[in-house]
Design a protein around this nucleic acid. Structure first.
Lengths: 214, 214
DNA sequence: CCGACCATGTAATATGTTACATGATTGT
DNA sequence: ACAATCATGTAACATATTACATGGTCGG
């Protein structure tokens, strides 16, 4: 269902083509949902035949056809109904954690490489998110500016507040992952140095963490 | 692919039946991966015909048939190969965040309910994870004790370290979500009180947070 | 004897990934 | 002319959810 609403949400800001959507959703750059164009185009057709969006054919240059979709009133109502629902939490699926807990069958070096990759992955993600958030707060994010157009001051503040919460929440998540990986690497070093070091009961990570600059 | 390795990982501790697996993975209670029995049984057959596990039929009581699977050497090698790989990060998909950023079309009350549900969800999750981690550190977690059997002291320490990292990492994630929702609720109240309150540039969440007890 | 749980499957549907396929436009 | 990017689709396959389907065991 989420793809449906990702599309409706996107089009509720301003009309756009399938290609525009796939630019945002393919690879999921800086975004909270992801889909490839092979999923997007059929879904657009389905949304259109359900009357939630309408597409108008345009021509670029001489021959290149594209379809620009707009949300309909029904589509907007559908979006509001969905946004008003309580969130439905799906079962947790975390391939990296799964890999980690069974990495005791691999070597310490492999675990270290894993944790380093983890840190780097979230450093990249944090930087990307920060870039987008900064552009947004500097009021230089085009799509969001479009969304603010023609709305009341209070409405605009709410939109910006929600975006800020979402982006800074994800940035903090990424920072948490970086700090976690850092700590994990330290604990792994400790393990390797002393093997059975202080032998006391293993402290919970949340407690045993000396270097949380937070 | 992950289901395959969740099963191999589980069976690398001790043999088990499809039902045992679905107890762990159905609904994903306290676990990092989730699957329903309708996925598990066919996958077990596939793993068996690939020679990675072997099933032996057992009879409970008079007639009830069950198949208890054990990992083979090939299966173990496959698990090690997988665990040694670098993690592959899939595109981010977060339906709750998606809902939140488009909730400016809904009302403030709906957003508040959403955030309250978010907090409660992660409070429950944190408590469940804590329960499991505490049992594990108290050395009362049966399955993990099974995994430690017959391994060297150093090996045991590594297993426990990895589990501790995974569980406490997830507990901290949950705590972060709770704190985030708490802060978001406060900011929403602030928004509602003043509507366009101090009008200064919105501070980034990570900075504007007064109550991080961390 | 009955309800909770053990135990295993299939089918239909929905969602997501990778590959295959085609052609136009724009800037260098 | 050539490469990068714009633009839209289909097909095959993999993965995940929900519903349908069946029967046994164990304890009260």
């Amino acid at each position: 269902m989420a793809l449906r609403y990702a599309i409706l949400g996107y089009l509720s800001t301003a009309p756009g083509s399938g290609y525009d959507l796939s630019q945002q959703l393919d690879g999921g750059l800086g975004w909270f949902w992801s889909a490839s164009h092979s999923q997007i185009y059929p879904e657009l057709r389905r949304l259109e035949s359900a009357g939630l969006i309408v597409g108008s054919p345009m021509t670029v240059g001489e021959k290149l056809e594209k379809r620009v979709y707009s949300i309909t009133e029904d589509g907007f109502a559908e979006l509001i109904a969905w946004a008003s629902q309580l969130p439905i939490y799906r079962p947790n699926r975390d391939p990296e954690r799964l890999q980690l807990i069974f990495s005791d069958v691999a070597g310490v070096d492999e675990i270290r490489r894993h944790l380093l990759a983890h840190r780097e992955h979230f450093e990249r993600r944090r930087d990307q998110l920060r870039g987008t958030l900064d552009r947004m707060l500097a009021r230089r994010h085009e799509r969001i500016e479009r969304r603010l157009e023609g709305r009341s001051e209070a409405q605009q503040q709410l939109t910006l507040l929600l975006r800020d919460l979402a982006y800074s929440g994800d940035i903090e998540r990424a920072e948490h992952e970086i700090a976690w990986a850092q700590d994990a690497l330290a604990r792994l070093d400790e393990y390797e140095r002393g093997a059975a070091a202080p032998s006391g009961p293993t402290r919970r990570g949340s407690r045993a963490r000396p270097s949380r600059a937070h």
